[in-house]
Design a binder for these strands. Sequence first.
DNA 1: AAATTAAATTGACCGTGGTCAATATATCTG
DNA 2: CAGATATATTGACCACGGTCAATTTAATTT
Lengths: 198, 198
Amino acid sequence: MKTRAPQKRRLQTRARLLSEAEKIVTTQGYSALRVEDVVAQAGVAKGTLFSHFKDKDGLLAVLIGARVMEDLEQMEALPTPRSVDDLIQKLEPCLSFVAQDRVIFDVLLRYSGSTGSEVNEVVTESFVRQITLFARWLGQMQKVQKIRSDAPAEVLAEGIQAFLNHVLALWFCAEHANDDSPAKALTPLLQVWLKPLD
Amino acid sequence: MKTRAPQKRRLQTRARLLSEAEKIVTTQGYSALRVEDVVAQAGVAKGTLFSHFKDKDGLLAVLIGARVMEDLEQMEALPTPRSVDDLIQKLEPCLSFVAQDRVIFDVLLRYSGSTGSEVNEVVTESFVRQITLFARWLGQMQKVQKIRSDAPAEVLAEGIQAFLNHVLALWFCAEHANDDSPAKALTPLLQVWLKPLD
DNA sequence: AAATTAAATTGACCGTGGTCAATATATCTG
DNA sequence: CAGATATATTGACCACGGTCAATTTAATTT
């Protein structure tokens, strides 16, 4: 199978698509992004976009993945949470980023499973990174008896992701009417999930 | 505000739409449902469908909600689970119904939050019913020391929903390649979630 | 440099969900 | 019954994502 390296024209085109898409997203929000606008601003034909990204979600996934990466960078620089409340507080930026727009949630959910096998997507990468960070934090919290130690940190980390998605799902259903913030709903669940056994 | 009762022509039309939609769904699956096919078979114009249902998902929600209701009916007739494994086994039919098609999952997730306030949707109703059933089961399991009692049964029930959605999300990401079934992935999570503190 | 092959881009075209002013049908009122 | 008024349905039309044979541009070979 012959596959040459992509030529630089292609890389430039891709870069232009991404930068124009990002412009739109920052000014009008993720859900306002239209494929036709992106290609118009980038000065390419519509088909070009779909030769660079599987579909619209694929493009969004790159943008969102990059954004999540930044949040993770911040989080990784933080010290290990001292308590469950502290943990939730440190989760908050990530949470409120996703909470801002339903399409962010949808895109992340659609890619959240891919276990980094081969698909070189930024989103996928961001997920393994997130779960790794959680597991590291939880492992350290276990050592100092802040949380339960009767389950592997990896399982506890997976649970956190599950609860994050859960409160976000509720958040979008409620049309922002009921709870004042997703983080509020998270507290009781994580308290129980991480509660030390004695 | 004047609002008369719907006249019977309207009820008939709605019934025809639903029954034709159901036909399509049972023969070709949920994701194969096309609005144009439904209205063609029902012998009405496209606009009519959207005067009866908010959008395509609204129609699907009625079908799916009804289907979930049947599953719940079965489950309610069952005795309280004796163990976590037994619980998972009893959850299985519901789980594998949703696992069969991504659009089922999407629709359910989109409506899963609405706390039955006013929207007279079958899906919404099915959700309160599900959480009620879970809470009843868990409450009884708590009494006989099968599971932890340091958290309200309602919170534990909510957690089950979160984990159900979590394993389903993973299931659809993996394209059915990795795990053999969503129920498998559920076991370790629920074991930890419901573990008695002894 | 011409010929050959592969990569990149194009844009007309399609499928499908959803809208809405116009029309038809039913119900009510004097 | 003849308007008057509310309800139900219509279907042409639009928005938007996505496809693919054809074309252009770049890299390789002779």
